[in-house]
Simulated scan of single mutants.
Amino acid sequence: MKLLPRLGFTAVALLAMCGFANAAPLKIAYSDWPGWIAWEIGVQKGWFKEAGVEVDFQWFDYVPSMDAYVSGKVDAVCMTNGDALVTGATGKPSVGIIINDFSNGNDMIVAAPGINSIKELKGKKVGIEEGFVSHLLLLTGLEKNGLKSDDVTIVNTPTNETPQVLASKAVDAIGAWQPNSGQALKALPGSKPVFTSADAPGIIYDLLYVSPESLEKNKDDWAKVVKVWYRIAAYMKAEENLDDVLKILSARVKISPEEYEPFLKGTYILTLDEALKRWETGTGLGTVYGSSKVVNEFNLKFKVYEKTQDVAKYLDPSLTKALAGKKGE
């Protein structure tokens, strides 16, 4: 950029017209979840360059990725719809522009050997990170099976420690998402999932959330990111691409494609047409609006934050709808 004054006004104007004046890429924080590692497909295949948008995907653990967003180090972050409400309630708003997927079995309540159903957790200890999605999953499972929250004893446990805590037999069950839930199953032979996100599809949506400032300033570029995402989603849905998809995703977290395949199966990637249905307003878990309302009520009940959140302010389907409109032309 220091060279621009030497080029003269005409050259600078030409550069600006060609889109080079704002050379800073869109900075996106992503982490270890199949629907987010999937961005690697677009990066490795050069689809962002083909779309004419510069992106900088930065790899973090999940909580640090949100910290990076809150501190302004990145323009966007991959989060669950529930965690977006929490970051917004504590001072950093965001707008979801892409529904990547919903959890379809990767989030689990894993019980020790001898416990075969969630009903059998009555009177038992469950290791859960309070206020996080696993807590909501547990409460949903209890309710669906005629139990109340006080029918179990919650042992507040960081999610990444749940495998060790279950193996130590300090608790009778844990709640976690992959890869922690899978590690818990391995850590205690004979343990089993007694309730998963596949039993409540839509309870956890995974989205790309953008800062309102960046979205307003770079809306055309974010529209290109949306376009690339649905190219990725279509590629992932084609059965003939499965081996390539597993190779790319598994390499990012340094495990074998065979080990990674169950993680991918526990994540429901949404095509463009499927996402449009999930963008509809409504109640219940069938839409991201309804799901977010459920999470908001949960967060208020358990004092994750004090003031109700307007979920509509966190969601913007316009870029997805615009892409769908162009597809139909």
Rank of each mutant, 00 (worst) to 15 (best):
M1S: 15
P5V: 03
R6G: 12
G8V: 09
F9M: 09
A11S: 08
V12A: 14
V12R: 12
A13V: 11
L14G: 14
A16C: 02
F20G: 08
A21V: 05
A24W: 05
P25H: 04
P25W: 06
K27N: 11
A29S: 15
Y30C: 06
Y30F: 10
P34K: 08
P34F: 08
P34S: 11
W36F: 10
A38N: 15
W39K: 07
E40D: 13
G42I: 06
V43G: 02
V43C: 03
F48M: 13
K49W: 02
E50I: 08
G52F: 10
G52A: 10
V53A: 09
F57M: 14
F57I: 11
W59Y: 12
F60A: 13
Y62R: 13
Y62S: 10
M66H: 08
D67H: 08
S71A: 11
G72C: 11
A76V: 03
M79W: 00
G82I: 00
A84G: 10
L85T: 02
V86P: 01
V86C: 01
G88P: 07
I97K: 04
I98V: 14
I99H: 01
D101Y: 05
N104D: 14
N104E: 11
I109F: 01
V110Y: 00
P113V: 06
P113G: 11
I115Y: 04
I115W: 12
I115C: 10
K119V: 06
L121V: 07
K122W: 00
G123Y: 05
K125G: 07
E130A: 09
H135I: 05
L136A: 14
L139T: 03
L139E: 14
G141E: 13
E143Q: 11
K144S: 11
N145P: 09
G146F: 05
K148R: 13
V152R: 01
V155D: 05
V155P: 10
T157G: 08
P163M: 00
Q164A: 15
V165T: 13
K169N: 15
A170V: 07
A170R: 13
I174M: 05
N180F: 08
S181Q: 07
G182V: 08
G182A: 05
K186L: 12
L188S: 10
P193Y: 01
V194R: 00
F195Y: 14
T196C: 10
A200C: 10
G202D: 05
I203E: 00
I203Y: 01
I204N: 09
I204V: 14
D206W: 01
D206F: 09
L207T: 13
S214A: 15
K219Q: 14
D220S: 15
K224M: 14
V225M: 03
V226K: 12
V226W: 05
W229S: 09
A233P: 05
A234H: 07
V245T: 13
L246T: 06
V253M: 02
I255N: 10
S256P: 03
E258A: 15
E259F: 09
L264T: 05
T267K: 03
T267V: 05
I269N: 04
T271G: 15
L272C: 07
L276D: 04
R278P: 03
G282C: 04
T283E: 13
T283I: 00
L285S: 02
L285D: 00
G286A: 12
T287H: 02
Y289Q: 13
Y289C: 01
V295N: 03
E297W: 00
K301S: 11
E306C: 07
D310C: 07
V311F: 03
Y314P: 03
Y314E: 04
L315R: 00
D316Y: 03
K326W: 09
K326C: 06
